[in-house]
Amino acid sequence: MSASEPPKEPVKYVEKQVHLPYCYVAGDYKARYLAALKDKTILGSKCSRTGKVFVPPIVASPESFAPCDELVPVADRGIVTTFCIVNIPVIGRAIELPYVAASVALDGADISIYALVQECAPEAVRMGMRVEAVWKPDGERQGSHEDIVHFRPTGEPDAPLASFMHRL
């Protein structure tokens, strides 16, 4: 005699393999920013109202809502504003643990970029420390963020906290 209902034991789950190809546009601002890295140049965009410089460049200031029409170079050196010491592995990233992930405010920029600080002991890194970019050698730079291998201490005197409070 056939059952009068479906099996008591349910199937627990269904698998769905979602496959989504994309072809992203970088946009002209980011395309020019990335291309300039090949020449060891870091570009920002300057707010037409406040003069603040955003790195990487964006078309409008989120703060003033004015356009940032002008692309300007900023220095490849600056100040560690905040940092953390990473002790856990991240999938897809092959860096020896522990390492320092820092926010670096480049000279001439009004916001910080994310950067690795190496060539010193993690516990030596501090807020206000001066660092500089270590670039890939000539001929190996591709116009990508990886053209900057990491940042390293310059040995210059630390910047006082008050000098970068507004960029934290």
Binding site: Y24, V25, A26, A31, L34
Partner: peptide
């Protein structure tokens, strides 16, 4: 134009 192909 700069483009990047990615499969998610």
């Amino acid at each position: 134009p700069l483009e990047q192909r990615v499969v998610t």
